[in-house]
């Protein structure tokens, strides 16, 4: 991963916009990790005497909402919630999807039918609709969201892995491992997986961005994280009531969502050109 050639490719894949994207992603991660130590006001503390303060107010850099809660603090703690859910969902999707794709692609037959048809069923719903169905049953909350979005986004990884595995399972080096007496689990884990992992890693930041998009949408509907937990989608929905007099209450969380999604998309582009150069070139044709 860090050979001289790979580093050269990394350098070539960078441009000012992409570097800005990486900086934003790093900044978001650092901010969310440091959130409790920044001396920010409690994001849940209501303060009736300081409602709807404008941007730049003393002690409230981004103002306060209609309950007198500090917007900056809610934004940063909201990022925390957002990232934890998105990373959790991406991890679930990555593990589940890769597993389905690996076993489906390597073993074929009934295993293939079961794993890839279940992927088809998931893909037969628009994601937000399936998420709403699950929320109806299990209620709202972060852990529900992580599991449901993990399942929803598993097909991306499953199909990527499946396609790759099918194309390499007849290769000589896989055959060689079989001849030397390796069991199927060992072959899948130590020979097949390392050779199909690059596009999966590249897919991860994009899935993270999509998770943030979907989670914020569900929270906007009031069906994502449970209030008063700060979440960007909820902040947009709450801010709508005061949008005419205080458009910043909607603009600030909206901007946070758009910038975060863009930044993760740019990081995905960098990783694609760096780790999976063949695919990068193909898409630029």
């Amino acid at each position: 991963m860090f050979s001289a050639r790979s580093l050269r490719r990394l350098r070539k894949s960078l441009n000012p916009v992409r570097i800005a994207g990486i900086i934003v992603v790093v900044a978001i991660i650092v901010l969310t990790l440091l959130a409790p130590f920044l001396g920010l006001p409690d994001p849940l503390a209501q303060d009736i005497s300081n409602q709807l303060l404008p941007i730049g107010s003393e002690g409230h850099l981004l103002g306060t909402d209609r309950f007198g809660r500090d917007v900056l603090s809610r934004l940063i703690f909201g990022a925390r919630v957002e990232l934890v859910i998105a990373m959790g969902a991406t991890a679930v999707a990555l593990v589940l999807g890769t597993f389905l794709g690996l076993v489906g692609g390597y073993f074929g037959g009934i295993v293939e039918t079961l794993s890839m048809r279940s992927v088809d069923v998931i893909l037969a719903f628009p994601p937000i609709v399936l998420a709403l169905l699950v929320v109806t049953i299990y209620g709202t909350g972060a852990s529900t969201l992580i599991v449901v979005m993990g399942v929803l986004f598993a097909p991306r990884f499953a199909r990527l892995t499946y396609g790759q595995v099918v194309s390499i399972r007849g290769m000589e080096y896989v055959e060689a491992a079989r001849v030397f007496g390796s069991g199927p689990l060992r072959i899948v884990g130590t020979v097949v997986l390392p050779n199909v992992s690059a596009p999966l890693i590249v897919q991860a930041p994009l899935t993270l961005a999509t998770s943030i998009l979907l989670e914020s949408g569900l929270s906007y509907l009031g069906l994502g994280v449970t209030p008063p937990t700060p979440s960007w989608g909820l902040m947009v929905a709450d801010g709508q009531r005061d949008i005419v007099a205080h458009p910043s209450l909607v603009a600030v969380p909206s901007l946070a969502i758009v910038v975060t999604i863009l930044a993760f998309g740019l990081v995905g582009d960098v990783m694609r050109d760096w780790l999976d150069p063949r695919r990068g070139m193909a898409s630029q044709l």
């Binding site: 998009l213 914020s216 949408g217 909607v250 758009v258 863009l262």
Partner: peptide, 23 residues
């Protein structure tokens, strides 16, 4: 087009309401 893909549809809608309807 990059912006168009990255903007959540409810954010676009909310600002449409603010600009073209309310203001």
């Amino acid at each position: 087009t990059t912006l168009g893909i990255s903007m959540p549809v409810y954010v676009i809608g909310t600002f449409f309401v603010l600009i073209f309807a309310l203001q």
